[in-house]
Every structure is written in C-alpha cells, then in structure tokens.
Design a protein around this nucleic acid. Sequence first.
RNA 1: GCGGACGUGGUGGAACUGGUAGACACACAGGACUUAAAAUCCUGAGGGGGAAACCCCGUGCGGGUUCGACUCCCGCCGUCCGCACCA
Length: 885
Amino acid sequence: MGWIAAPNRLTGWIERMAADRYDAPKREKHWQAAWEAKGIFQAREADSRPKYYVLEMFPYPSGRIHMGHVRNYTMGDVVARTMRAKGHNVLHPMGWDAFGLPAENAAIERGVHPAKWTYDNIATMRSQLKSMGLSLDWSRELATCDLEYYHQQQKLFLDMLAAGLVDRKTRKVNWDPVDNTVLANEQVIDGRGWRSGALVEQREQPEWVFKITDYAQDLLDALGDLDRWPEKVRLMQANWIGRSEGLLIRFETIAGTAPDGHSILEVFTTRPDTLYGAAFMAVAPDHKLARAIASTNAQAQAFIDECHHHGTSAAELETLEKKGFDTGVRVAHPMIDGAELPVYIANFILMEYAPAPSSAARRTTSATSNSRAPMAPGSARGSAAGGGRRDIRHGKEPYTGDGVLINSDFLDGLSVTDAKTAMAERLAARTVAGKPQGVRKTEFRLRDWGISRQRYWGCPIPMIHCETCGIVPVPAADLPVKLPDDVSFDVPGNPLDRHPTWKHVPCPKCGAPAVRETDTMDTFVDSSWYFARFCSPRGDVPTDTDAVGYWLPVDQYIGGVEHAILHLLYSRFFTRAMHKTGHAAVDEPFRGLFTQGMVTHETYKDADGKWMLPEDVTIKDGKAVQAKTGAPVTVGPVESMSKSKKNVVDPDSIIGTFGADTARWFMLSDTPPERDIEWTAGGVDGAYRFLQRVWRLVRDAAAKGAGPGTPVPSEMGPEAEALRRATHKTIAGVTSAIDKLRFNTAVAQIYELANALSAGLQVAGEQPKDDLRFALREAAEGLTRVSAPMVPHLAEECWALLGHDTLVAEKPWPEADLALLTEDTMTIAVQVNGKRRDELTIARDASKEDIEAQALKLDNVVRAIGGRKIKKVVVVPQRIVNVVA
RNA sequence: GCGGACGUGGUGGAACUGGUAGACACACAGGACUUAAAAUCCUGAGGGGGAAACCCCGUGCGGGUUCGACUCCCGCCGUCCGCACCA
C-alpha cells in the first residue's frame, strides 16, 4: 500500500466531486451581481404592464436576520418573481422599522449611540438579506429613523392635526417603570409591559392621541370587503373594534343617598331587556360619583386605590376577581314602583375613553346569576342555568335559540332582540329631568390611539408649548424637528427633556420663550404608512399622489399573525387619514394579506439545565450529545425559535454552507405556509441534496437533450409523450399553487417533475431519439423555470447549463400546453358497494354505457358481486363506477 | 363562557365543487456502485392476514345523510388561537 497512490486517489476524488457538485455559495454571488448589474428589480411607475405591489412586513434592525425573516421574505420573493414573470410591473421594496427601544437600551448598556447602533445593524442585515438573493428594489430602501422619513411623518402629523384627527387628552395611562414610558393597552400583557415585562402602574398623563375611534364603524364595515384577508384576522379586528349597541339609561338617585349634584346616574347597558332582573348598578373607580363618595369615605377611597393597582386594559380587568364596594347610593328602578337598586363601585368597570360628552359608567350588571338579585331573573334562555325562580320549561315546547322573556312584565313572551327594542322605546318615551330616560347608543371597545412616548429614539412630535399661546404646532417651514445627536443615557428618563438647549425655542406665534414637546411618537406610527412612502421614497412631500395612486393598495402583504390587530388596524386607520388629508386616494392599504407561521426548533439543555444552541449539539448513536465534549444533552419540546431558549439557527451559517437557495427551498417545502415550520438539520440536508440533484439532472439533460430552440418533432414516442405531459402538468400545477400561496404543494410538484426527468434520462440511454431529446430539454427548461421563483440562483445556473445567455429572471412565465394535460385514456376506480375492487383504464370520452359494460366485466368486480343481483350502477364519467349489489 | 381553527402512516404533510385516502418529502429497510465509507442510483413500505391472487381494518371518538364521506350534518373528546361583566 504505497502512500504515493493515495494522493492520486484523493485528487481524483476531489476532481470528481468538483465536477459533480454545484457550488451554491460561490455561484449565488455571481448571479446576484448579474441581477444587480442589469437593475431588473427596480420598479418604475411609467409602465404599460399591470402593476403588482408585493410587500413583506419590514424588519426591526435588531442586529441580524433570523429564520422568521428568511421564511417571510422568501415567500414574498416567490410571489414577486412569479408576478414579474407573469408580466406585471412589480414593486417589491424593503426598509427598516428603525425607531424603538432596543436602540436606547444598547445606548444605556454599551454606550453606543442609538443612531450608530441602528445603522450598523441595518448595514449587517442589508447584506444578509442581499445574500438571500431577494428580488428587491433596493433603490427605494428607507429607514424610519432617516431624517428624510420622519420629516415627512411630522408633516403628516400636522396635516392630521389640521384635519381634526389629532387630539390631546389627559388620561390614565399604563406606565412602564422599567422602560420609563407610557404603553398602549395593547402593549400591556397580563399587567406587564410587552417589552420589559415589568408590572405596569397607572398614571395620569397628558398625551397625544390619534382619533381612530372616528373610523371605528368604517374600519369595522370595510372588513367585509377584505376578502383576500384571512378570516381569522378579520374576526380578530372585528372583536377588537367591539361594536355594541345598547341603551344609555338615566336613573334617578333616591334623595339623600347620593352626594349633591348626583341626582341622575347615567348607565350604559347592552342588555336593557334584563332590567327587570337588575340587581345593582356599578360605576368605574374613576367615575365622578365614585370620586365624590370617596372624598368623604375613606373605605371607598381605599377600594379605589386598590383598583388602581391593576392595569387599565380590558383583558386585564377580565381576569380580575370581581369586587364591588357599596356606595350607599340608591337609584330608583324605572319600571318597578318603589324598587331601589344599590350602586357599587366595581373593579371590573372600565371608564370610557371615547368622546362621550360626560363620562358614564359603561355597563350595568344584571342579576342573571347573581345571588343579590332582588328580582326574578328577567330572561329565560333555553340552556341557561342559574339561581332565582328561573323557569326553563316555560311553555309547551322546549326552548331553542334565544328563547323568550318571562317575569318581565310587558316584555314577557318577547325574544331578547324584541325585548331590547321594546325597553328602548319605553324608556325613550319617558322623561327624566327634562331628557329622555333612555337613549340608544352604539359603543365601541376600540379606544383612541395614544402615541406619546417619553423616549428619545422616535419621531419628535412637532408641537411647541407656549405659556401664553397654549400648544402651537411647529410651522411647516420650520420642519423637520430634528433629533439632537448629543444626548446621554446615563440617567433614566427622556434625554430630550433634559437636553440643555433642544427643547427651548421661541413660540412660533408670539415669539416668547417656549418649549418643544419632548414626547416622541409610538413606533407603530412609523410603520403605519411606510408602504405608501415606498411609492415615492425620496419625495419632499410625504407621498407622491401619482405614485401612490398607481401602486396602492399593496396587492399582497405578508407577515406574522402577531400583527393581526395593532399594526394592521393602525395602518388601515392611517390610510384613511392620509386619504382625508390628500396624501392617498384609497382607504384600504392591503388588498391581500397573508400571515405566515413561525419557525420552530427543538430545544436543548445541558446537564446543568442550561439552554444550548442547536449547533453545539450532535446526534451520536441516536442520542443527542454536546458536539465538543460528548456530554449528554436533554432534548426538549419543539418551540418557536427564540434567543432566550437558544433554539435558533443563524441564517448566515446556513447560507454560507449550503447557499441561500437551500434555505429558501426548505422554507417553502413540506409545511403549509400559514403553519409553524420546524427547522431541522435533516431537512436542510434534504433540501440541499435535492437542489444538487436538480443541477445534475439539468446538466445531463442539457448533454443528452436537444439544443436550445429546437422545434417540436412531429413523431412522439410514449416515453417522450409521458415526459412532456409531466412537464406541462407541473407548469400548470405550480402556477396555480403559487397563485394560491400553496408553496408546499408547488414544491411537491417540482419533485415529481424531477423524478419524471430522472426517469426520462434513464430510458434515454446514450443515444436518445429526437422526440425524447426534445422532451428532455423541455422538461429541464420547465423544471428550471417553474423553480426559478423559489431557487433563483440555481435556476440561473441551470439556464446557463441549458445553453442560454439570458437570465431566467427576465424570462416570461412558462405556459402549459393544455392539450398535453388531458390524456386520451384514463384510469378510474370501480367500486362494489362503495369499496374499491378494481380499476378500469378506458377512453377518456367513453360513454356511460361503455364504462358500465367494461366495469362489470372485470374479474375482481364479478367476484365481489358474488352472483348477487345488481340493484344499481352509478357511473360518473372520468371519476368512478360504483356497483350496488 | 363565547367565537374560530385544527385533529390523516414513525414524521412533515397531500387529496380540486363528496368520487382509487396517504401524492411529495423526511426518517427507515433492502439492493447496485465502492477495498470500505460517504455521495449517488434503484427498490420497498398505513396496520393486520396470506406463498400469492387477494381479503379485513383504517383519516380523534360515537351516530347520521349518501350509491359513495378525510370532505356534509348532529353529539362528544383533545389541541391551539382570539375575545370576554352577563348572555
């Protein structure tokens, strides 16, 4: 065994490997450069093709891209590339949701300026995204922290202010003591800040709000037209807006029980029909009556204080134990002479923030299951249980549906709906203190959108506080209000507020010394119009109306379902606001919406219970062990990738090792896009191997197949025919799968074509005939072109292997030859009594009679019938035969 | 509690408007190639029975409609999501 021989073998092996392998990481850079050189992904407005706007939710520049981004942007890219090939003028831009807390946290922790931190991250992530080979128009890139961007946002704010869409309210806010900022109710989860996790406190704070409630009804109604949105998201938004119709009832308080000035108590209820069963009235802890009581009653005050320890969000209130405090106040029951109802302060009642003229307790509670009910329950619903003298079996027939009311005087026998109407009419006709006792009112759960944040790294709110003139907008000519660069984060609080000079400006009206608003905008504002800005990202007005008129709405928006409510609802509001202020011509920003699932991975812990990165774990003898030490590893459940559990895989290392196409292919394979996908090392290998196989198949087909542009031969043998059929079936199938965003089924069909091409190459031998040579080329080209949106680099490589000097990215989408999709003969199943017994291959256009006759002749069918009498034969041509015996 | 979605082999999943359940893939097993391994190529496979032809069972569970049900209806069980004073 001479050692001289070894190098030869090794060299031969390396050469063979090199010749047999597609070097994805290397070639991908080449094709990316080729696309960029031609600028083929840059969108222009002046174009006769139909427009198509594809957008994925833009990322927060947290540092590096993660697999969720890879999945999201791959899907969008498939749509963009496919629509481009199908002859659309495609806009597919990318930007950065760049304002926000983490930048300030980095400043606090590491002393790096938020701007530097952000732009450095953007540079990293941009290059990572570019390595994915996305067909993005990078010339439109923007970051919301660009002065150019937030300058325009300040203009929008002032226009919205002028249009009456901005308000300033003092209200009870959720204060996050860790982040030192106000949070929207939506940002409070289980009483804790959504970012910091700190327990939220309540505070009084003046803040700027956008009057989204002005559009509550419209935002609700328009959901019905968003037929290309997931039903789930529309439902969530409808619930969030939470329209409820009810009655505002004015109760008279019993003399001597209520403080002065409280002779009337206004109460809103959605169930006026249950008034006869009412047990008590409840007011919110901040209701003026509650405050009046508390001013002279320490116990009441203590109860109110206790209530304030909880968050203000509705969800928070619902999970609380229900508690009440009897104020001693009594109101007269409007329907029952002499009956009185107690008034409680309750911890589960919410002050209404909507622009009601005078705050009222929002809800009343009926007695349906409350032991303190002084009256019999007012409604008997078929399945309702509960105390009191409820008579479930009222009447001869069992109740179905909503049932009818009992023990409710004039409402008896009415349905709930009719009873509500009857009660509303009765109360409306009565007068209390000069006004109708009952007024119909529609309320919404949705509240105005508070946007003030006591933060540095956000868009400054362009307002000035003057002692004599009040609050004055910054004149448009003085915009932008630029964030100062010289800020420090060594002490808590808002750096803008304690900056030595920044906030001190003369009042634009009177010239006297005044101060700027030091609050900045909620970053959800930034993301509420970026899709519009992409239409004219460099304009010196917020939107170019021509460009926006051309591109909007976004035809296909793709992102995570976690934004189902906030971001999407705010964007819908903002688009309406932009319409009203002349910055857009549509109301709905997103014509089509798709919410993709998350990326998950197994979790790993070492012997000490510490989380481990997947890359530090290997499988040895079927057991998970630490790659370096071989120490045992505990495999935990599959969970969505998160830094805290370390079950993350870095896209860079995948792309660097296997290439972007492998990562893209994995993300599209196997799992339906709306579901969570589990990232596995095995799956990556599988994707990589398949792409290598495609490359080899196309290379071999290029060698054995016909030359480029060879016309269809007149004679076609069965093998060639079958391969051609597979090709065209795949083209048709992939086209419709991508159209429906069913990427996993598109992938499966591409596998089938690859298998068919492989079979074709097998039968071809060394000297295939012209018909098969044609079919091989057609299949290889078809395979290349339908997979191009998913694995664009490999497709370019294959296209070149096939002898083309053009780019697939510029080729039109292939068309399936419909004539090849239908075969002359087909195989249908034959059942006997509903069980499949045989199958029948027969002419496609065979008559029912022929099919029946042939089916009844089949041996298996005859045997299954077993001599019984045939009662009936169901024949569905091209589908099935069922013999009933 | 209300509303919604989902439940299919060892695994991810496919199945168009009710018409051959399990496409395609992963993992697995066998074979070819190799000194060997990797890679690659070929073959097999829902479960059970049978030498085979075939037969029985099978889409969470129980009913129903239908010639025929993963698909439609009713009732359960389970998982996930959203919402929620009450209904």
